[in-house]
Structures are given as C-alpha cells and as structure tokens.
C-alpha cells in the first residue's frame, strides 16, 4: 500500500439531471470536476448554494449516479471507483470506508436514539454494550440529555436530530467522512463540539470532504477549498 495516494480522487466528473417529467429537460450541474482528498486532510467544497456541492457529496457516497468520470476511493482493503461500482461494492465501501453526515436524519421510526447512534459500530461488529457506551459518551458530549436516549429521534427538535445525526456519523472510525453542513442548525457550543470532533478525526488520519456555510467553521477546519463554480457549465440548460 502506498500512503501518498489520496484517499479520494475525483476526476473528470460530469453530472446532468434529466427531468423526464418536464419534457426531458436537461440540467447540467458539473463538468470535468477534479480534486483529491488525502488522509488527514479536510477539503471543503466552496461556491454559492445551488452550485452542486451537495450533489458532489452524494455522488461520492454513491447516492447520486455519475454520468462520466471517476470517483476513486482507496482506504484499507477498499479500492473502488464509486462511479462504476455495483451496489454491493458501494455498500461495502460505506460500511468499511466512508461515512456521511447529512443535514437531515433518516431512520426507522421506532428505534431509540442511542441505538441509532450505536448502529454504525454494531454493523461493523463491535459488541453491542461497548457500542452503546461509546454512543452515550458522544451524545452527552453533544448535549443530548440522557432522558432522550431511549426515545426515537423522530420525536426530537430539529437541532437535536441534527446532533444525533452528527453522533451517528462520527462514532465509527472510518478513513473517509463526508460532511454536508454538519453545523447548520447548531448553537455556538455544539458547533464548537463538532469542530473539535472534526479536528480529532483529522488528527487520527481521516480524510474529510465537507460543505460548510458557516464561514468561521469553514476557515477553522478547511485545509483547502475546491471552488465548485469553476466546474459548473456556463449555461445550466444543456442542449
């Protein structure tokens, strides 16, 4: 294994949305996107909202289809091109190599918060008790009172859900983390906790790719900013 290879290498990435319900209108979002993220590095996607930043994260995660180009993920035993990998390979990559912290929480209705947070560890074979302890630790650090741990997060406020989501995303030690505005609706205290968590992960060698609207957070955590607008077609409506 060569350590100088980036954990994530995005090259020549194109993305166009075809909206069949609107007469097949095509919306070109990205053209020829190139960037790398190395271990222990935090790369931030910059640009105005609507530039396609979230789409990039989703393509890296395998959540959006890639029209053209490569999304090479190399971490541990994983070495795949997400753009062409089959679902099984992508699921394996998600389990062993990359995590995703989105703005919105999506989970099964009846599962309690503590289990939601512990789930990524359990899925990786960590003993349920130990996973629960680590989940509890993370939830208290993020200021979720322990009386809520046994309740399903669907009943929580927006900010609480966001923090459960952050805990869910940060609990496992994965080589690659994708962060989609993890601090968006947090107060200053919790924003600070998230920044700390990010710093700890970077220290441990995690590669990070993120979107941060909060300029202060962005400047604190970013090693580099990729200007997404440079890769946006002049006219969004393709031929």
């Amino acid at each position: 294994m060569t350590t100088d290879q980036p954990t994530l290498a995005v090259s020549g990435l194109d993305k166009t949305f075809t909206m069949h319900l609107q007469g097949g209108q095509r919306l070109a979002v990205l053209r020829g996107l190139d960037f790398d993220v190395s271990a222990g590095e935090c790369v931030v996607l910059g640009g105005a909202s609507g530039a396609g930043k979230s789409s990039i994260l989703k393509m890296v995660y395998g959540n959006y289809a890639v029209d053209r180009g490569g999304v090479r993920l190399r971490a541990g035993n994983i070495d795949i091109d997400i753009a062409t990998a089959n679902p099984r390979e992508i699921l394996a990559a998600r389990r062993h190599a990359m995590g995703y912290v989105s703005q919105f929480l999506r989970c099964v209705p009846r599962v309690p918060a503590l289990e939601v947070v512990a789930e990524p560890l359990v899925a990786r074979g960590v003993d349920a008790t130990e996973a629960g302890e680590r989940a509890a630790e993370l939830l208290s650090r993020l200021g979720i009172p322990d009386r809520l741990w046994g309740l399903p997060p669907a009943t929580f406020s927006g900010g609480e859900q966001q923090r459960v989501n952050v805990a869910h995303g940060f609990i496992a030690d994965l080589p690659m983390l994708l962060l989609d505005e993890p601090t968006a609706s947090l107060d200053a205290r919790n924003r600070r906790v998230v920044v700390e968590l990010i710093a700890e992960k970077l220290e441990a060698g995690t590669a990070m790719l993120g979107i941060f609207h909060d300029a202060e957070v962005r400047e604190t955590v970013a090693d580099r900013v990729v200007p997404v607008e440079d890769f946006t077609p002049m006219s969004k409506v393709a031929a």
Partner: peptide
C-alpha cells in the same frame, strides 16, 4: 435498478421519476 437510496434520490428512468414524484 440499483442501490435503493440512489434509485429513490436520483432516479434515472422516466417511470421511476414519476413514481418518486
């Protein structure tokens, strides 16, 4: 066909888009 979240979040086929919408 594909990963469930991919099919539902970025549907490609006209029919899937109709179904999702």
């Amino acid at each position: 066909s594909g990963l469930t979240d991919r099919v539902l979040d970025d549907p490609q086929a006209p029919y899937t888009q109709l179904l999702v919408s």
